[in-house]
Write a protein that binds this DNA or RNA. Sequence first.
DNA 1: GATCCTTTGAAGGTG
DNA 2: CACCTTCAAAGGATC
Length: 442
Amino acid sequence: MADEELGDEVKVFRRDEDADDDPMISGETSEQQLADDKKEAVMEAELDGAGGAGSSGRVPTIGGLKAEAFIKAEPSPSFPMMPMMAGPGLSPAYGLPMMFPFFMGSPYGLRSPGMMSMLPMSALSPQFGMFPASPLYGAAAMAAAAAKQQLENAAPLHMRAGPLNPLNQMRMPPYMTHPMMPQNNERRGHGGGKVKKDDHIKKPLNAFMWFMKENRKALLEEIGNNEKQSAELNKELGKRWHDLPKEEQQKYFEMAKKDRETHKEKYPQWSARENYAVNKKKTKKRRDKSVASENSDQKKCRARFGVSNTDLWCKFCKRKKKCEYATDRSGSDMTDTQDGRGTSGACSSSSESPSPTGNNGIPLATQQQHQAALMHSMLMQMHLGSTSTHVPSPIASSSAGRSPLDANASDSESDVDEDEDIDPTILQQTREVIMQESVCTL
DNA sequence: GATCCTTTGAAGGTG
DNA sequence: CACCTTCAAAGGATC
């Protein structure tokens, strides 16, 4: 049974029961559901406290921090107990509720607090660093799981506790969980969070992700459950992952493998590519950042060496032609070289400028004046701030004004303003680096 | 409220 | 084939 079907079922349900149901689904309903969740959590906690691995002294108390974490308990693979389980159970299209009634015993599906009590966060050894066999594989946990499963299975699926129907407050079948319970997802962190784009099928988790999922809480507890940031935590987890014996890692790799297989079985047509657009904004920003840093490494000769070191410029730059270095290295991200249009490709600026050809259309005289002024200011800046002492005579001699040479030099110039705020220190550093690289051979 | 940070691994795309 | 990019989880911090 596919979750899409469930989703459809849910949609049909919603449509049938309440044509204009949106107000019912969100808002007060969510609060109501949240309250209900808490009640359920308490009940589950009490139940679980009776035995099983979950009873290992970690009885959550609602109201306290632990209760908070408890209620927010996220799904765990709990792998031995659900060998065929697909994914984290968060994705609306992910779980296989009908195939794993045990996990559906609670209204929370895979996020059941009761389930959590059997999971590593409760069974984990405090000696996190040791990583004894994943607690998931512990005999106690498995025994508890089996016992609970028997109990749960004793009742027909349709009679087991399901979530409250927000529309009529009646108990729904247990498999009706996430697709129609947006708040279940929305309570999650960003990744698994909101119900985006309807049926966003998440990637199956890889081994490390499973590892993180299972051990994050234990690590948190180990370090005192305090202010450590998630990113730092992940760093630590990364270290520990490396320190983990191969056989231990293997378990997680198997989990990941099964997860992938199940995922593939369930969504044969799905491709990881499909999810690329989901976080488009985020990734775009990141990429922009990286591109910017790349670009800073792909400056043309003038930007790299500065006007005071034209002797280091490539022959093309010296002639105000397309920079040998920049075109070789960057090529595609320079607008004036990408499509062959743009300017003459004069090597005069950093590629940081979004529009090297921005001066197109401006009268040549204006451009020349502008350039002369810039040259002057740059030279002044370099004289004042740079340790570099050599200033090529042609330009230096024209620093006060626009010499014929300058005018000549600006014939094809179109992007002079980009070096306007050039930092002498950076220039010097860049120069040193480039000198080492010996890139622009004359 | 959206995005970043940070980790590893899988998958897809590109040259 | 090697390399690059994106996404998966997490949750506090930052914008």
